[in-house]
């Protein structure tokens, strides 16, 4: 037990037993912990977002649906979506504002505020975009007029195909950054 023995052998043994206890105890505790942490951080390892089929453009509207020089019109983005084990066909994944600035020229904005991801409203009375969360507002070109957003509204690539079909490449971008960086990069 605790009686200090003058012989070195028992003390050596006791030290060995202490070390061995700590080593084994540490190892057996560490293994399940490590396995748990490794699995828990899986989302960071997986990274990236869902990949889209084709060129990523979706047909959203016809030119005649958009008044020239008029108010932006909101369109839901409906697409196939994969989420962990599930695959969904044709579910809403976001929305865009489309605006025909000149005949045949369309601009598209993601409806999400670049600040912290709230849904930005179009205010017909003020003719602007307004984020109801932290009061950022943007003009119809998407530029920041006032408020805390680090950048203007996120524009999306638009293509007018076959004369009147409006196709948009829907993307989301990282929140609260001065630069527009795709969210899945």
């Amino acid at each position: 037990m605790t009686d200090p023995s003058p012989a070195p052998a028992p003390t050596d043994r006791r030290e060995f037993v202490k070390c061995a206890s700590c080593a084994i105890g540490g190892a057996i505790g560490l293994l399940p912990m490590a396995a748990g942490v490794y699995v828990a951080i899986d989302p960071i390892r997986q990274g990236g977002g869902p990949s889209s089929v084709g060129d990523g453009f979706l047909r959203l509207a016809m030119l005649e649906d958009l008044p020239v020089g008029g108010a932006p019109v909101k369109f839901s983005i409906v697409s196939d979506k994969a989420d962990k084990w599930s695959r969904y066909s044709q579910v809403p994944i976001g929305a865009v504002y489309l605006q025909q600035t000149k005949p045949g020229e369309v601009v598209a904005f993601n409806t999400v505020c670049p600040h912290l991801g709230c849904f930005v409203d179009y205010r017909a009375s003020q003719k602007d975009f307004f984020c109801p969360c932290h009061n950022s507002n943007f003009n119809l070109s998407g530029a920041l007029l006032s408020g805390v957003s680090p950048r203007g509204m996120d524009t999306l690539e638009v293509a007018v195909r076959n004369g009147r079909e409006v196709w948009v490449k829907f993307q989301t971008f990282k929140a609260n950054q001065a630069e527009k960086i795709p969210a899945n990069s």
Binding site: P32, Y38, V39, D42, R45, W85, S86
Partner: peptide, 23 residues
């Protein structure tokens, strides 16, 4: 409609998931 599916995902798709489930 999600219990088996989520366990399948843990077992087959999450790296190390099979090991944790096995433990």
């Amino acid at each position: 409609t999600s219990a088996w599916e989520s366990v399948y995902y843990m077992q087959e798709r999450v790296s190390g998931g099979w090991f944790l489930r096995g433990l």
